[in-house]
Each structure stands twice: as structure tokens, then as C-alpha cells.
């Protein structure tokens, strides 16, 4: 794959990651702010919304930039391995930012009755465990790409 094709692939994936990590979560939280279930409002304070939005955009930008570098790199190259690893690490921070922003404690106010709270911290912890496995895979990839560098490059050039 030549440089232009690499870059097109990079931009496509960057766009996908921008939508997944920034656009969709922002729209979702914006929607949740005005959402009510059976007439009962889900509580998301202005401050809480601003904190969540900040981290979504901040880490979303890093993930999207990283995705461009990762997906525009040649298959099984060391630079792809390095940036894929960085991307997963930033993804972990992004995931955890939901927790410390308070987005994992969902509160639904029921006027005249009280309120209901859903705590999904345990679910996030399991997700983080899965992310650890993903990090392990990326480190394994990086070692593999480095150790077998010559073989991989030769194979790539042979395809041409």
C-alpha cells in the first residue's frame, strides 16, 4: 500500500474514532440531560456534564490522532505496534474518565418519592480487566513485530 492509500486509511479510521469517542458520547450525554423515564428526570448536573464533556473531547482528540498514526502505518510495522499500544493506553484513561467524572453513577429523580441510583463501577472494572488483556496483546504484537522485523518487511515487499 502506498503513502496516499495509507493516509486515506488513516483518515477514515480517525473519522470513525472521532465519531465513536467524541460525537456519539457527547450527543448521548446531551440527550440524557433532557431525558426522562416515565416522566422522571435523570439527574445530570451542569457541572457534571461539563466535566464529562471535557474529558470526552480531550481523550477523544488524543485517541483520534493516535488512530490516524496507527492505521496509516504499514501492516505489522513497529511504528504501528507502538502507536496501537499508546492508543489502547489512552483508551483506558478515556474509559476511566467516565468513572471519575461521575458518569457511572446514574441518578434518576422521582419527584415526590425519592431517587434511584445505578452504580456501574463493577462493570467498568471488568471492562478495564479486558483492556489489560488488550494491552498484553499489543505488547506481544510489538515484540513480535520487532523480533520478526526482517521477515515481516521482506514479506511486505514481496507482495509488491
Amino acid at each position: 500500500m502506498g503513502a496516499p492509500k495509507n493516509m486515506i486509511k488513516g483518515f477514515i479510521f480517525m473519522g470513525i474514532y472521532t465519531v465513536i469517542t467524541i460525537v456519539v458520547p457527547l450527543l448521548t450525554f446531551g440527550y440524557i440531560r433532557q431525558l426522562s423515564i416515565e416522566g422522571y428526570a435523570i439527574q445530570l448536573t451542569q457541572q457534571g456534564y461539563e466535566i464529562i464533556s471535557f474529558w470526552i473531547v480531550a481523550f477523544g482528540l488524543l485517541i483520534s490522532g493516535c488512530a490516524f498514526f496507527t492505521y496509516s502505518s504499514p501492516k505489522q510495522s513497529i511504528r504501528k505496534g507502538v502507536f496501537a499500544l499508546i492508543q489502547v493506553l489512552i483508551n483506558c484513561l478515556y474509559m476511566w474518565s467516565y468513572k471519575f467524572s461521575g458518569a457511572t453513577d446514574i441518578q434518576i429523580d422521582i419527584s415526590g418519592f425519592g431517587f434511584v441510583v445505578l452504580l456501574v463501577q463493577d462493570l467498568v472494572l471488568v471492562y478495564m480487566g479486558v483492556y489489560f488483556l488488550t494491552i498484553a496483546i499489543k505488547i506481544y504484537d510489538l515484540v513480535d513485530f520487532t523480533v520478526n522485523r526482517k521477515t515481516i518487511r521482506e514479506a511486505r515487499w514481496e507482495d509488491k
Binding site: F115, L118, L119, D122
Partner: peptide, 15 residues
């Protein structure tokens, strides 16, 4: 609930 992955609290206030 949900295999102990989701914890819920229902608060009834001033009943």
C-alpha cells in the same frame, strides 16, 4: 443485578 456488575439503590425519601 446483571451478574453483580450493576449495583442499584432505591431511595424513598420522607415517606
Amino acid at each position: 443485578y446483571s451478574l453483580d456488575l450493576i449495583q442499584f439503590e432505591i431511595h424513598v425519601v420522607d415517606f
